[in-house]
């Protein structure tokens, strides 16, 4: 799939959100999209998903089956979890028996079994996010687009996401994922796209093996410790307060 000199703005006269973006997503590739809040990550992902049309330029060779998990799943609509997922499976063209199998599989895998008959507006943010993840996977996607997929998920489901990504890649599909939590360190061999000031900088996958080391420091030394690690070329993924200390 190619993005060929893509420009996008939301209406005439508005500032450009994306400018002269040229990039390629290889089959079987994982791309992590990085950037600060409001940089245009979600816009870029929606452009690739086919939700938005470029104002200039072209997006070509988009795979036939695209799964898109938006940043916020639309929970403010009627129906139960099973009803919604079954309807979305039908929209994806699955026959009733295949739709039932797909819904059952993802309800089980994502731990939604206890929420089958719960109405969508009654779901917590995290459970709604799981439903959003499930709808994108009902038909095995050739291109899976995850916009901050770890947001609101419990630890058990967060751990499932890298496995799901690797399954898609193993089938020859591609995955794009935006992340500001540092969770994408668990996606080996991912290329990195950084969105800043409307432009896109791409970096090839890091071929060297990387490890995650958890280090505890005194709160008073935190800023110095983080600064020293960064000076030494290490990537600080996140800082958290130790609970119960």
């Amino acid at each position: 799939m190619h993005l060929d000199d893509v420009w996008l703005r939301y209406h005439r006269g508005a500032p450009w959100v994306l400018q002269a973006v040229t990039a390629r997503v290889e089959p079987g590739g994982i791309v992590v999209v990085l950037g600060r809040n409001g940089a245009g990550k979600s816009t870029l992902l929606q452009l690739i998903a086919g939700v938005l049309r470029p104002t200039r330029g072209r997006v070509t060779d988009r795979p036939a089956v695209v799964g898109w998990v938006p940043e916020r799943s639309p929970a403010d609509q009627t129906g139960t979890v099973t009803g919604y997922l079954s309807a979305m499976a039908a929209v994806r063209g699955l026959r009733p028996a295949a739709a039932t199998r797909a819904v059952d599989e993802w309800v089980q895998r994502l731990g939604l079994g206890g929420f089958r008959d719960v109405k969508l507006p009654e779901l917590s943010k995290g459970t709604a996010q799981k439903v959003g993840l499930a709808q994108a996977l009902l038909a095995p996607p050739d291109l899976l687009i995850l916009d901050e997929p770890w947001e609101g998920l419990d630890a058990a489901t967060r751990d499932l996401v890298p496995g799901i990504v690797l399954e898609v890649v193993a089938r020859g599909g591609s995955v794009l994922v935006s992340d500001h939590r540092g969770e994408t360190v668990r996606l080996p061999g991912a290329a990195t796209w950084t969105v800043a000031d409307g432009t896109l900088a791409t970096a090839a996958p890091d071929t060297g093996q990387r490890c995650v080391v958890e280090v505890a420091v005194e709160a008073a030394d935190l800023a110095d410790a983080v600064a020293r690690l960064r000076e030494q070329g290490h990537q600080v993924l996140r800082v958290r307060e130790e609970v119960g200390s």
């Binding site: 086919g50 994806r92 709808q135």
Partner: peptide, 18 residues
């Protein structure tokens, strides 16, 4: 107008055709 905007976009992606 019943359908939330994000759901309309999801439907577009699911169908693969605007």
């Amino acid at each position: 107008d019943v359908e939330p905007d994000v759901q309309r976009r999801l439907a577009r992606v699911a169908l693969g055709s605007a």
